[in-house]
């Protein structure tokens, strides 16, 4: 299976690119934590701790699965599947 991670603003600067495609053989789903570990293996850049804290999405970080905010999903941990696009945005709150 293949999933795409898109990151924005300081996360993009941290990762060095805005989009990364991760291929996971022999599996048909992957958790966010595992996906970010795969990203680290592939790029050498650890952005997991900027997105997850104590197994939860950090306050102030918005995660979207195929354009839908993950916090609108009712289940606990969401698993990603082949073809999914995960977007991570830390929105600016100031005015």
């Amino acid at each position: 299976m293949k999933v795409t991670l898109r990151v924005y603003t300081y996360l993009k600067a941290e990762l060095g690119k805005g989009e990364i495609c991760i291929e996971i053989p022999d599996s048909d789903s992957i958790s966010l934590g595992r996906l970010l570990e795969e990203v680290q293996k592939s790029t050498g850049k650890d952005i997991k701790e900027k997105i997850i804290k104590d197994n939860k999405i950090r306050d102030g970080i918005i995660l979207m699965l195929n354009g839908k905010n993950l916090l609108t999903f009712e289940s606990g941990e969401v698993l990603f599947h082949d073809g999914d696009v995960i977007s991570v945005l830390p929105p600016g709150s100031g005015g």
Binding site: Y8, T9, Y10, L89, P90, P91, G92, S93, G94, G95
Partner: peptide, 10 residues
Amino acid sequence: HAGISGFYGQ
């Protein structure tokens, strides 16, 4: 809507 922080915003 717009929001800003540092050098970025949406």
